[in-house]
Design a protein around this nucleic acid. Sequence first.
RNA 1: GGAAGCGUGCCGGAGCGGCCGAACGGAACAGUCUUGAAAACUGUCGUCGUUAAUAGCGACCGUGGGUUCAAAUCCCACCGCUUCCUCCA
Length: 424
Amino acid sequence: MIDPNLLRENPDAIKASQRARGNDESLVDQAVAADAKWRKAIQEFESLRAEQNAAAKLVGAASKEERPALIAAGQVMAEKVKAANEIADAAQKHLDEIIWKIENVVIDGVPAGGEENFTVVKEVGTKPKFDFEAQDHVALGESLDIIDIERGTKIAGSRFYFLKGWGARLELALMNMALDYASKNDFTALITPTLVRPEVMAGTGFLGEHADEIYYLPADDLYLTGTSEVALAGYHRDEIIDLSNGPLRYAGWSTCYRREAGSAGRDTRGILRVHQFNKLEMFSYIDPANSEAEHAKLLAFQEAMLQACELPYRVIDTAAGDLGSSAARKFDAEAWVPTQETYRELTSTSNCTTYQARRLNVRFRNAEGKTQTAATLNGTLATTRWLVAILENHQQADGSVKIPTALRPYLGGQEFITAPKARA
RNA sequence: GGAAGCGUGCCGGAGCGGCCGAACGGAACAGUCUUGAAAACUGUCGUCGUUAAUAGCGACCGUGGGUUCAAAUCCCACCGCUUCCUCCA
């Protein structure tokens, strides 16, 4: 939810943001009008209520003879208060409806426009040149016997897979390396629930336009989370957190579930786009004044991980129209996928400023001792999808895959993944 | 799954339908005392909204409804927690 004070003080800033996103600008004027209407209604209700409260007190103090008249007057008063209350409630509901539709105000510098209007911030690393026919991760996974898509599909349907042997170990190694790295950088590890209640799902903003992306269990009225961000954002819901010693940082590990309803036929090959994967997610609660610096930090952590995996990548600044409703700015890091000859998203980091925290009612005490809405940021530190880039970029002429040096300690020192010897 | 009990402020814990935003205790913060600290004493001490306002006023005692002139207190539903039994990785 946007800051109502900004709506009153600088509606033009919100309009500019709506324009950059390609959203409806007129919502802002509607919201301003609805806000004025609500304030008028709430004032009327409150003054009537004050009258009623005063009158009700008199009844208690009155003598037996005086009471009936006072109670009769009170009944009339109660009707008026009820009516005023209904008007105020309706005005507030109307205002809420409009204000919820307004997405977070984008940060200056975010490119305007849609998905294709991103700007490339940087390109890092050297794309591999193979003097042999490069295999994609599916072929590698099969020949090395580390990804079993056929059997995944057999037991759970399309977009499911088994990670096997070194494949399974590689994923755990990646997660562990990421967790180590995060822990060294002030993030507290959290293993989160992956089933949450409707109000948490709605509160984190995932039940909006992406509702059909989410698995739902009607028998229990629970949702399967598509990212631990849901639990991490809900973690401090309705709390006044202590940021006096700096930001609160969490590294949430969870399995993620996505229906991929809108992407039928897209990326059907391999494990690039699947219904179930694992992810280590960074999440920061911070004073909004420092949110942009924190955002840069999260991005730097992601880059450090990509570099540790020796992957060529680029960073893009996502265009306003391609941001989620909560994000004020988003950077994606995309790794080079040789067989696709293109960059594919491996990480994403969003600065949600106070938008998400306001909805979740997460506040902190500022230097003056007053409560203030916190800012939240999130960013991927590792996911199953990284295996695609690791396998493809580090494949060798003999069909084996070289394990990045930084990952080896998590794999018992193993240097290469080689095809298993044929069984007798 | 069966049975009982409970949900009040940072924590513990009172609360008769009007005098309750809420006793009391602890914690925290500020001050006095002290070379300093502890102890003791004094004071401050919930959140949100409205408003120019740290003035007033309004809302909030798990959540949502209801009864009443008036609800933390009565009624209903929901959610959660605890204990016991059953089951179980």
